[in-house]
Design a protein around this nucleic acid. Structure first.
Lengths: 112, 112
DNA sequence: TGACAAACCTCGATGTCCGAGGTATTATGT
DNA sequence: ACATAATACCTCGGACATCGAGGTTTGTCA
């Protein structure tokens, strides 16, 4: 399923931080996890993810380290920082408020 | 509460059509309704609404007519068309899928 | 007369997403 | 041996959405 790409807008940071809250993960893996955890609803593009990862890192929300995978391929793992945890908590609150608001508005249809 | 404005992205059409599903409404009134119906969560700006209204109209999702208010001030009312109803249904589905996906992702935190 | 609210509008700055392109390594199939 | 696909990283530019700031008109109230 593909949405209006703009629906995703603003929630990418929330989504990425949520994945990293669970455990350290590398870019490619984050994309897989999002797909999996959302039951194939999300299919984040690399062109979206990598810039977001870099901006989260430069904001101090996550940190990174390199690590060789089984076959000698190098992966860049990301780890959520304390600051990132606080940011995640804030973004979750915003999401609750926002989605709650949308649900109240659309729930009051023609027959409400 | 003000969000990341970008969270709103992509959902403005859904929100506007939802208001019009109930009854014909004019621009200023739509803003009031959104505020009211969402328990003050949403505060859509005029600079956002008017361009959206014009684009919905040029896409045939809504139609407009002028009508004088009590005091002789003219209001431009918008009415949702059949096409707009179908669009609204589609956008509601997308919203369900999208918000469901986000909830699944953020619900599986560090202790899941 | 002045100030404010209702009601409409446009323009430009900013920020987000992603398609398209690039690089390199390893695995798979023929 | 060779081509293709998958893994894994990256950047750039175009497209699009939001909204702050600005503008206009009419009516109300002191």
């Amino acid at each position: 399923m593909n949405f209006d790409k703009s629906l995703l807008s603003g929630s990418t940071r929330l989504l990425v931080l949520s994945v990293l809250e669970r455990k350290d993960e590398y870019g490619w893996g984050i994309i897989q996890q999002l797909k999996e955890r959302s039951d194939d609803t999300f299919d984040m593009r690399e062109g979206t993810l990598y810039p977001v990862l870099h901006s989260l890192e430069s904001d101090g929300m996550i940190s990174s380290y390199e690590q060789d995978a089984s076959a000698g391929r190098t992966r860049k793992y990301y780890h959520i920082t304390d600051k990132g945890q606080r940011e995640l908590a804030r973004q979750k609150e915003q999401w609750e408020a926002f989605s709650g608001g949308v649900n109240r508005v659309i729930g009051q249809g023609a027959f409400a």
